Amino acid sequence: MNTLKVGVCLIAATLLCGCNPLMSASLNNLKAAVIGPDEVNVSPDEVAGVNYPQLKLTTPSGSGVLALVREREDLQFWVASGKQVLLLRNGLAVRSVGLGLEGDLDGTRQSDDSPFKQGLHRVADGYTTRRWIDLYKGQEVGVIVNSRFSLRSTQTLRILDKDYTVLRVDEQIDAPAIGLRATNRYWVDPRDGFIMQSEQQLTSQLRVKIVQLTPDRRHIP
Rank of each mutant, 00 (worst) to 15 (best):
W78D: 00
A80F: 12
A80G: 13
G82E: 01
G82S: 03
G82R: 04
K83R: 14
K83D: 14
K83N: 04
L86G: 03
L87T: 04
L88V: 03
L88Q: 08
L88K: 03
R89N: 04
R89I: 07
R89A: 09
N90Y: 11
L92Y: 13
L92N: 05
L92T: 09
A93R: 01
R95Y: 10
R95I: 07
S96A: 11
S96H: 04
S96D: 00
G98P: 03
G100Q: 05
L101N: 07
E102W: 05
E102L: 07
E102K: 14
G103M: 01
D104H: 09
L105Q: 02
L105V: 04
L105R: 01
L105F: 00
L105P: 00
L105W: 00
D106G: 09
D106E: 10
D106C: 08
G107K: 05
R109F: 13
S111R: 05
S111P: 10
D112K: 11
D112P: 08
D112G: 13
D113G: 00
P115H: 06
P115C: 01
F116N: 08
K117L: 08
Q118L: 08
G119C: 00
G119N: 03
G119I: 01
L120R: 02
H121P: 06
H121A: 06
R122Q: 09
V123Y: 04
V123L: 06
D125Q: 06
D125F: 01
G126I: 01
G126W: 07
Y127C: 08
T128Y: 09
T128L: 10
R130A: 15
R130P: 11
R130N: 15
R130I: 07
R130Q: 15
R131M: 12
W132Y: 09
D134C: 05
L135A: 01
Y136T: 15
K137W: 14
G138L: 08
G138K: 02
G138N: 00
V141H: 07
V141F: 10
V141L: 12
G142M: 05
G142P: 03
I144T: 15
V145L: 06
N146P: 05
N146V: 15
S147I: 15
R148H: 04
R148E: 10
F149P: 06
S150H: 15
S150F: 10
L151K: 05
S153W: 13
S153P: 10
T154F: 08
T154W: 04
T154H: 13
T154I: 14
Q155C: 08
L157E: 15
I159N: 02
I159M: 08
D161W: 03
D161H: 07
D163P: 02
T165H: 13
T165Y: 13
L167Y: 05
L167Q: 08
R168N: 11
R168P: 05
R168E: 10
V169A: 12
V169R: 02
E171L: 03
Q172T: 14
Q172G: 13
I173M: 01
